[in-house]
């Protein structure tokens, strides 16, 4: 395999793993529910994009890459819908967000 593509793939995998862990740490560190949603979306967007991109570079041009891209597409489509549904359900359930607003 092309050595450059392989190096790029490993760079993607390592940085992807970094963002996955950062998102998980954010879910622990953030003070309340609505701020945790933002931390979780770090894992669900850039973390998964980089990990899947690394695997696509490793797999090369084949059906495997198509399936990987499909997994990525489903993660991106479903995660934003799930997060929105979660936020809306929390608002309806009476959990009010704390804000820093001056007014």
């Amino acid at each position: 395999m092309n050595i450059l593509a392989e190096l790029l793939a490993y760079a993607c995998l390592v940085s992807g793993a970094f963002f996955v862990i950062v998102g998980a740490i954010g879910v622990i560190r953030m003070p309340e529910f609505y701020t945790r949603l933002h931390a979780a979306s770090v894992t669900e967007t850039l973390g998964s994009i980089l990990v899947i991109a690394g695997l696509v570079l490793l797999a090369g041009f084949s059906l495997v890459s198509v399936k990987l891209l499909m997994v990525l597409l489903f993660i991106l489509f479903t995660s934003c819908t799930a997060v929105h549904a979660l936020a809306k359900a929390a608002i309806h359930g009476g959990l009010m967000p704390e804000t820093d607003d001056d007014d």
């Binding site: 996955v20 998980a24 879910v27 979780a40 998964s48 995660s79 929390a90």
Partner: peptide, 17 residues
């Protein structure tokens, strides 16, 4: 409860990876 659902959803996404 919503925190737990969020965590399980995140867990699922990481499981896919």
């Amino acid at each position: 409860t919503y925190d737990r659902i969020l965590a399980v959803n995140l867990f699922g996404t990481i499981t896919v990876l």
